[in-house]
Amino acid sequence: MTAFYLRWGILVVGATILVVLTYRNYEENLATMTPEQVLANSPTEEIRVKGLVRGGTLRGELEEGRASFDLAGEKDTLPVQYEGPPPENLRELKTLILIGKWKTPTRTFQAREMALVTNYGFVMGAYIVGLIPLALFLFFMGRKVCLLYDEIKQSTLYQSESDTHVDSR
């Protein structure tokens, strides 16, 4: 029984490490800033900005992968210069995530890639729905097998007693 719990303990530790790694990966690489945060902090490294493409500001050659537009947040807007692969999802009044650098001298956001806004709840939900019931199912099944082995050992002892009882008759 102890060995059984030990094995599951190791597994839980492994799973926890994985969860922490995933969460940190998400925080570092996938978390987004708002246009207000960019304007206030003027970060120098590559960042991800989430905002709405403002209506009437989009211009440039989309097929060649060049465009300029304003990205609106809650209050402020960010002028964006996009240069990269031809964007498929770039449309006015659409919420997007832009990946690129903030150029303080020209006060424009130089984007090199864009991504759709992901609802991470779905990804997380799928993994929870897929793995947690499976793990619980296996855990209770394994525990029951351990208990059954114990019970069978005990019932064998009991049986030998009753055997002697039958013999003594």
Binding site: A115, L116, T118, V123, G130
Partner: peptide
């Protein structure tokens, strides 16, 4: 992430 589906494609690895 997948080019078309983005991050949601990660559900494929469990489904």
């Amino acid at each position: 992430p997948d080019y078309y589906q983005g991050e949601v494609v990660r559900i494929m690895y469990i489904h």
